[in-house]
């Protein structure tokens, strides 16, 4: 039983169509990896799922709710879909803990004590128990991204969307973020990840999607996509990345 079902999803910016009919479903506890050249529409797909971008056509069913319905409570929906951005987007004027607890307090209306307890737990999960009082500017890129992951986890989401979570990081900091993602996978979190970390995809992903020019070209288990891709475009892209 899939938790997320995307059918015929289209998105245009002006006259350019970026998503040309995407069909994709994600099951509970599944880690789905999306790869593809830049401009293929991966990030747009992710941003359409929680409607940071308004889809132009098609449907998105999430946990029994139609996301694109006008009557859908968008804020409630987004709460149950965590999102992690390439550029972290931490609030620079708040401590790590305040970053994590803002939505708990303002959206879920939890008391400060309760929110702080949840926030500390989430920061502990990403290995940053000792950084609760630090401001983003005092943290390394890897630490900032882990705070951003904690911010998403604190709301107890049913899925977490990762939009190139390690692309802005120095190579030596990537590992700490991937380790957190691995832990999440082990804990049974449903994840949809746009990333170029092929080794991580090979180890951890249940399924890999290859996108190009607004279409899903090919999908399958990582071994199939990386070792014996059926489509020429997939083969060329994977070969380019592995080189």
């Amino acid at each position: 039983m899939p938790i997320l079902t995307i059918s015929g999803l289209r998105k245009s910016f002006g006259t350019t169509e970026v998503l040309k009919g995407i069909d994709l479903s994600v099951s509970n506890r599944e880690l789905v990896f999306i790869i593809g050249p830049s401009g293929s529409g991966k990030s747009t797909l992710l941003r359409c799922i929680n409607r940071l971008e308004e889809p132009t056509g098609g449907g998105i069913a999430f946990d029994g709710v139609e996301v694109t319905d006008r009557s859908t409570d968008l804020n409630a929906l987004r709460r149950s879909m965590g999102m992690v951005f390439q550029s972290f987007n931490l609030y620079p004027h708040m401590t790590a803990l305040a970053n994590v607890t803002l939505a708990l307090r303002k959206v879920l209306k939890k008391s400060r004590d309760e929110a702080d307890a949840i926030g500390r737990e989430a920061l502990a999960k990403v290995g940053l128990s000792d950084k609760t009082a630090s401001y983003p500017s005092e943290l390394s890129g890897g630490q900032q991204q882990r705070v951003a992951i904690a911010r998403a986890l604190a709301l107890d989401p049913k899925i977490v969307l990762f939009d190139e979570p390690t692309s802005a990081l120095d190579p030596e900091l990537v590992g700490s973020v991937l380790a957190v993602m691995r832990d999440l996978k082990a804990g049974g979190m449903t994840m949809l990840v746009v990333s170029h970390e092929l080794r991580f995809a090979r180890d951890a992903a249940d399924r890999v999607i290859f996108m190009d020019q607004g279409h899903i070209v090919e999908e399958g288990p990582p071994s199939a996509i990386f070792n014996e891709p059926r489509e020429a475009r997939t083969r060329a892209f994977v070969a380019g990345l592995l080189r």
Binding site: L52, A76, R78, G82, F85, A103, A152
Partner: peptide, 20 residues
């Protein structure tokens, strides 16, 4: 990105404006 991060955690537009 600040708008998007806040909205992705379920904050409404007025809340995002006020707190972030």
């Amino acid at each position: 990105g600040q708008w998007e991060a806040a909205r992705s955690t379920g904050l409404s537009a007025p809340q995002t404006l006020t707190y972030v």
